[in-house]
Design a protein around this nucleic acid. Structure first.
Lengths: 195, 195
DNA sequence: GAAAAAACTTAAGATATCTTAAGAAGCTCA
DNA sequence: TGAGCTTCTTAAGATATCTTAAGTTTTTTC
């Protein structure tokens, strides 16, 4: 996919939420940066500050937290036409404690925060778009808190499969386990038990 | 505390984050609504839609989710000078699935969403204030997801006590248990074990 | 101030989930 | 194509947390 097609995909994606005129599209296009990551390559590492919004054009990514025992905890998973970031670092301007990593060879569009915030003033539709995105991010995380308290591991796995069927196919099981908050061995056991 | 004093408390609270001129304060004051809740009284129940931002002037509150097994899961706790809401419902305009309840006799200031959003246009400082609040809410919830995956129950309890010492004193232990995601019996056991 | 209600504790037995370790299966790259 | 790495499975024993039930303490209400 060439840069033009990639840009088109982003525009199409924004237009699903808000309407954009020619001038808005031009302005947006002018701040776009393209980035390619190889499998397992990192976009963000702990200590860095997230200063772009990142749209997945092709490929898949995840963000995860590495705890003191060396265990990974996956916070977010994403494939084509999803946004991936450490929103905590991006919003607060603080250093990230996450890894944001490509799970496959991945093409991204990055929108630098400084330029994006200037754009918000000129093009309120774009500001609205990201407000909506951040609100959905909040809702999704809150949903996860509730699920982690109400559901046992198998129920969480089942919900995950139903909500993210296309992601489940492409992501190794041990990463799904680290998203659900269980060990890979236990997830394997649950799969067998319920099959 | 009379209405004037309550209003002063809110203004003082906003001024800790953003600066407000006389006209901004006047406009804000004009949309304020006061509300008093008795102990155990509900501000929001499942099926209702949250249509105000709620500032606790005096007292304490919580929001919780009641699951299919009749178990309560506390999502948020708050005392004087905290905001309490079902932000999910407020932001998405969807029906709430939460209870928002007073834990003591409580005085609230409510800012109706419709009027507040009009204010955002005239007074960007107020818009900024709530943007910051919503961002911190996001960060807090994400922190909780991480903690629930990395820490065992005692570590979570310990962090809770350190972060919310003043809340811990005023809230029954079974509610703290329901915030931490454990049974009251188990929390009681942990407290004894580590004392 | 007594009775009732709410909150907390204790303890025993049950269950969910983890740890460790080893082997099997699947993928990747020379 | 084969060797080496990565991922998945299995199973046994360990641990964290829950359930139930009963008794105690604290708070609320009349």
């Amino acid at each position: 996919m060439d840069f033009k097609q990639q840009t088109q995909l982003l525009i199409k994606h924004l237009k699903q939420e808000v309407s954009l005129n020619k001038s808005a599209i031009e302005k947006l296009t002018s701040i776009i940066k393209f980035k390619e990551l190889n499998k397992k390559e990192f976009l963000i590492k702990p200590g860095e500050t997230a200063n772009t919004m990142n749209f997945i054009v092709q490929g898949s990514m995840r963000s995860y937290y590495l705890d003191e025992n060396g265990q990974e905890h996956t916070l977010q998973l994403g494939i084509e036409e999803w946004w991936i970031n450490d929103l905590y670092s991006y919003l607060s301007r603080k250093k990230s404690r996450m890894y944001v990593q490509a799970l496959e060879k991945t093409h991204l569009i990055r929108l630098p925060k400084v330029e994006l915030e200037k754009l918000y003033i000129e093009v309120p539709a774009i500001s609205n778009f990201f407000r909506i995105k951040i609100q959905s991010a909040y809702v999704a995380v809150q949903e996860r808190v509730i699920d982690s308290m109400c559901d046992d591991a198998y129920e969480r796995y089942d919900k995950f499969r139903k909500s993210y069927r296309d992601i489940e196919q492409r992501v190794p099981q041990y990463i799904i386990a680290s998203y659900l908050g269980v060990t890979p061995e236990f997830l394997s056991y649950l799969r067998k038990k319920h099959s």
